[in-house]
Amino acid sequence: MLLRSVFTKTVRDLRWPTFWTALALFVGGGYFTLLYPTYATQFKLTELLDQLPAAMKALIGAQVADVSTATGFLNIELFPMILPAVLAGFAIALGSGATAGEESRGTIDVLLSYPVPRWLVVTQKAAAIVLSVVVVAAGLWVGAVLGAAASNSPLDSGRVAEALVMAALLALDFGSIALLLASGTGNRGLGIGVSVALLVVMYFVNALAPVISGLDSVKQASLFFWYLESNPIRHGISIGDSLVLAAVAIALFLASLVAFERRDLAA
């Protein structure tokens, strides 16, 4: 049933990594919303944050949120750093493995001796990866909503979903960087290494831009800027910024089709 096409086969290959990552985010989302009332009262979060120096606040994203609701709490605890890092890391792992995994395992020779165009192999694998990222992001959403319901915390589930869409797009950007590098070279390690490095650098460029004046002029080069600039969890999804994130992913994806088409495949 799951062995009909490259797409369904890839869905099958990714089912366990996707399940476990989704479960982890489900637990994480539930943890934060379930414990929100405790945190809010015991640690007097609002006051605590007010005392932090500006640079520290910038780093954890505290300048963009208030913690008087569970939504705002998630906005500080999860959305600026942990969530995009986990989602992007997941997308990088899958993107880098899409075709380079078949190359390093040596199965690409068999696969591409069947009447499937190379571009269609990449496309079907990419589609399965998008599906996995969506499922994993949905895992967080369900966890957060259930946790909030159980603890009677005020959570704007619609806003959380909108922010998750942008986080997923950001993750797919990094996944596409990994896909392009790995499918264009056959070297999975290169795909992972460069994308993770870019992820870290881009995070800091955007996070520190408000406090380090030199960074302000280059922050637009950071994908995190387009993800966080509009503060989606508070103000809702920014269509413009989402389009930027989506355009980057699509451009990188199309480039990887071309790169993979031209290459000599590893034996």
Binding site: R105, G106, S113
Partner: peptide
């Protein structure tokens, strides 16, 4: 593609 519909291949180092 037209070729691969009509040809079968067994690689040397089959994986």
């Amino acid at each position: 593609l037209a070729i691969d519909r009509r040809v079968a291949y067994l690689p040397g180092d089959l994986s």
